[in-house]
């Protein structure tokens, strides 16, 4: 053996060995990462897989980009739905017949002495005219119409709604207490539907990521069938082969998804002003941004599981 060649590959082996030893004897965190992401030493034996590298990275990036907006949409709808539900559940209306001014004072007195009522405000004629404007147009003289007297009530914790209804019925028989239950239910139902659409979009994106990663892994596994056969023939256990492929595809998916998430986050930040349906728009605030961290992690997890499954199935073809 020539001295130069010997020195060259012994040095390389020593360098590899130093890394190997460090990894084998390293901190628990290193071992945990290895367990989760596979073994770098195992990864080396997998031949380069050409275009599937970019397929996996690009697909993960694209899906993560879409996932950012789907997640923001789901969170925004969630917030709106919660707001609707909370606000409407606190809002009550007491209605008196037109001209029942004599009953108004008694009603206000009852409301002001009932525990759990935060405020009770009579809706004046101007506000009523504003409410009717979409149907009756501008310039309406509300006093010329037999409009009922309306009291806007905001409830608080501890309101006994049934008790209030019974008291009003007993003392002001013509007063009607409306808790908006009739039209609150469909609104909440609609919000829940929108919320479901948002989460369904996220689930579909996760499924698509899994499908693409699986296809990429299967393509790489098919291209490397001979390498897998060789590994088995020299004594590799299935776990070794699975770790080798798993690490590669999981890291690619993580890298792609991280890039896609960053791009999506920037896009989200630069979105124009919010609209009327989603008052806060799709913009995330404060801790909301932390949700985005989950996207690459989930993409990595999906890739990990998909690759493990694909590799295990491919190994079944070899003894």
């Amino acid at each position: 053996m020539s001295a130069a060649t010997t020195a060259k590959y012994l040095t390389r082996l020593a360098a590899q060995g130093a890394g190997w030893t460090a990894r084998r004897t390293g901190a628990g965190l290193t071992r945990a990462v290895e367990l989760a992401l596979g073994d770098r030493d195992a990864d080396r034996v997998v031949p380069p897989t050409g275009h599937t590298v970019w397929l996996t990275v690009l697909a993960s990036a694209a899906m993560a980009f879409l996932a950012v907006f789907a997640l923001a949409f789901a969170l925004a709808v969630d917030q709106v739905a919660e707001g609707w539900s909370e606000e409407l559940s606190r809002a009550l209306t007491v209605r008196l017949p037109p001209g029942a001014d004599d009953q108004l004072a008694r009603t206000m007195e009852i409301l002001s002495t009932t525990p759990g009522i935060a405020s009770a405000t009579q809706i004046d004629s101007t506000s009523q005219a504003d409410l009717l404007e979409p149907w009756l147009g501008t310039g309406l003289d509300a006093s010329s119409l037999p409009l009922p007297l309306l009291i806007d009530v905001q409830s608080d914790e501890g309101l006994d709604l049934r008790g209030l209804a019974l008291r009003l019925h007993a003392e002001v028989p013509e007063a009607v207490l409306d808790d908006h239950a009739t039209w609150r239910a469909p609104l909440i139902e609609a919000a829940a539907g929108l919320r479901a659409v948002g989460w369904l979009a996220l689930a579909l994106i996760a499924g698509t990521v899994a499908a693409i990663i699986t296809l990429g892994a299967q393509s790489a596994l098919a291209a490397n069938a001979e390498a897998i056969r060789v590994l088995r023939l020299v004594g590799a256990r299935d776990g070794f082969v699975i770790r080798a492929f798993t690490r590669r595809f999981t890291l690619r998916a993580l890298a792609g998804a991280a890039a896609g998430t960053v791009l999506g986050g920037v896009g989200l930040y630069l979105l124009p002003a919010p609209g009327a349906v989603l008052p806060q728009g799709l913009a995330l605030s404060g801790a909301g941004w932390l949700w985005l961290v989950l996207i690459p992690l989930l993409a990595g997890l999906v890739a990990l599981l998909a690759t493990k499954r694909a590799t295990a199935r491919a190994l079944g073809r070899f003894e």
């Binding site: 082996l13 020593a14 590899q16 060995g17 130093a18 190997w20 030893t21 084998r24 030493d41 195992a42 080396r44 034996v45 060789v230 590994l231 020299v234 004594g235 590799a236 256990r237 070794f240």
Partner: peptide, 13 residues
Amino acid sequence: ALPLQVTGRDPSA
């Protein structure tokens, strides 16, 4: 060195 590697041994050793 592949058989060493797949059995988890340190090739440098």
